[in-house]
Computed example of a mutant assay.
Amino acid sequence: MANPTHIRQSDGPDLTFTEGKVFEKVFTDGMALVEETAAYLDGPGRKLSQTLPREASLTYAAWSMELTTRLMQAASWLVMQKAVQDRDMKRSDAALDKYRIRRDDPPLDASAQRGRGLPDLFLDLVERSENLYERICRLDSAIYGNGPKDTKSPVSLQLQELQRAAETGAFDPLRVWGNAK
């Protein structure tokens, strides 16, 4: 028998996935991770970030923003799938490119940052969040098929511009950071 996530009907993706236990588990775990990460970043993580060495502090700030963005994208996708499940949204609408989720940028590599001054709990959250995001990207692709690969979100485009500016020397985050102190 075919995998239910790959079954399609003539009018769009099959609902089997959102009606199953796998979706409920991904939804529950994903939303719990969003809450856990938000609580950490707003509480102990915020206090701890103020005591980090300069380089670790810069990485923490950048990664916190990226982590928050990816988790919000994942949560939005999960909520949208829930709307499909509850018949509050048409499955054909959920297949539109604007609701799709895919990885445009490489994942954050928490293992490469271990031992470099970032808190282990933060790196654990990064790792778990990256795993969730990757899983949701695979599910999206399995349910709705592969969409255009060259479509980037506005946030991804701005991050690319910042990266290009930093690489060319037009923007030096370390210099800006030093002037802010």
Rank of each mutant, 00 (worst) to 15 (best):
1 M>L: 13
2 A>N: 08
4 P>C: 12
4 P>L: 10
5 T>A: 09
8 R>Q: 14
8 R>G: 05
13 P>E: 06
15 L>G: 01
19 E>Q: 13
20 G>V: 09
21 K>D: 12
23 F>G: 02
27 F>T: 03
28 T>R: 15
32 A>T: 10
35 E>W: 06
37 T>V: 07
37 T>L: 03
38 A>N: 12
38 A>Q: 10
40 Y>D: 02
42 D>G: 07
42 D>P: 01
44 P>V: 11
44 P>T: 15
45 G>I: 12
45 G>A: 11
47 K>H: 10
48 L>S: 09
50 Q>R: 13
51 T>I: 14
52 L>R: 04
52 L>M: 06
55 E>C: 06
58 L>P: 00
60 Y>R: 01
60 Y>W: 08
61 A>G: 05
62 A>L: 08
63 W>H: 02
63 W>Y: 10
64 S>Q: 04
64 S>C: 05
69 T>F: 02
74 A>N: 03
77 W>R: 11
77 W>V: 00
77 W>M: 01
80 M>W: 04
82 K>Q: 13
82 K>I: 04
83 A>S: 12
84 V>Y: 05
87 R>Y: 10
93 D>Y: 08
93 D>M: 10
95 A>Q: 13
95 A>V: 04
96 L>H: 09
99 Y>R: 02
105 D>K: 12
109 D>T: 10
112 A>L: 12
114 R>S: 03
118 L>W: 01
123 L>N: 02
125 L>Q: 05
125 L>T: 03
129 S>P: 00
129 S>Y: 00
129 S>N: 05
132 L>I: 09
133 Y>E: 02
138 R>M: 06
141 S>T: 15
142 A>W: 01
145 G>H: 06
147 G>T: 11
151 T>Y: 02
153 S>K: 03
158 Q>K: 12
159 L>T: 00
159 L>Q: 02
160 Q>D: 14
162 L>G: 01
162 L>Y: 07
163 Q>K: 13
166 A>N: 01
167 E>Q: 15
167 E>P: 03
167 E>S: 10
171 F>L: 14
175 R>I: 06
178 G>W: 09
178 G>Q: 15
180 A>D: 07
181 K>D: 09
